[in-house]
């Protein structure tokens, strides 16, 4: 087991937009210990979304090295990326991204359906994840029967159901009112506290960032400032 859960060195990402090359990441390095909470901040166009895509294994870097929980991610092909996302990354999106026709339970089961987990343990794991986020009594409700805060809880349960190495939360409170937003942040922090989940929050809200232990500021594809709170 590696010392770092995230070990990214000299990451670059170049997009070809017609004739123009866009350098979204310009040699960015980042190390994250297991159990850390890290906020990634930066204005739009700073490369923080690209960084999130790299760290979440949704895309591979143009150059540089990235080890997630000891596995070399740079150079992986699509299906390998899908596999490592399935095993090691949990996602929480701003817009919840739940399947509208499926129950909370079925939504939480979704990542397990793409792993080799069998049906019965799938159900059990999804139930306990929903209990962890405090929705043990609403498992069979569909997303449209749940409040925004509850929907985000379902999404968090889905992110942690396969016990990932990192949970990536992209503006997790962006679509919620202040009260629900605070509750969601509390939930994420308690997960980190109780279960040692490594949490990477991408946000532009300094208040959210203030909840975390470490804030990384990105600008023009580079880390410009790190604060350890």
């Amino acid at each position: 087991m590696s010392e770092w859960v995230v070990d990214a060195r000299d990451l670059t990402k170049v997009y070809q937009m017609g004739d123009v090359e866009v350098h979204a990441l310009r040699g960015l390095s980042m190390l994250i210990e297991p159990g850390e909470i890290v906020a990634i901040m930066g204005p739009s166009g700073s490369g923080k979304s690209t960084l999130m895509n790299m760290l979440g294994c949704l895309d591979s870097p143009t150059s540089g090295e990235y080890y997630l929980d000891g596995e070399r991610v740079a150079g992986m092909v699509d299906d390998q990326l899908a596999d490592i996302r399935n095993r090691k990354v949990g996602f929480v999106f701003q817009g919840f991204n739940l399947l509208p026709r499926s129950s909370a339970l079925a939504n939480v089961e979704l990542p397990l359906r793409y792993s080799s987990t069998n049906g019965r343990s799938r159900r059990g794991m999804a139930r306990s994840a929903l209990e962890v986020v405090g929705l043990g009594d609403r498992m069979n409700h569909r997303p449209n029967e749940l409040s925004g805060g509850e929907q985000q809880r379902v999404a968090i349960a889905r992110a942690i159901v396969n016990e990932p190495s990192i949970v990536m939360a992209d503006e997790p409170t962006g679509n919620l009112d202040t009260k629900s937003g605070d509750e969601i942040m509390e939930l994420l922090l308690s997960l980190n506290h109780d279960q040692g989940t490594t949490l990477i929050v991408v946000t532009h809200d300094p208040e959210i960032a203030a909840h975390t232990g470490r804030v990384v500021n990105i600008r023009d594809g580079r880390v410009v400032m790190e604060n350890n709170l």
Binding site: D79, A82, R85, N86, Y114
Partner: peptide, 16 residues
């Protein structure tokens, strides 16, 4: 499309 993206983020492979 968005649902497909979500499923892929959750680990769906091409053949899934």
């Amino acid at each position: 499309t968005k649902e497909i993206g979500l499923r892929k983020a959750m680990g769906a492979r091409k053949r899934d």
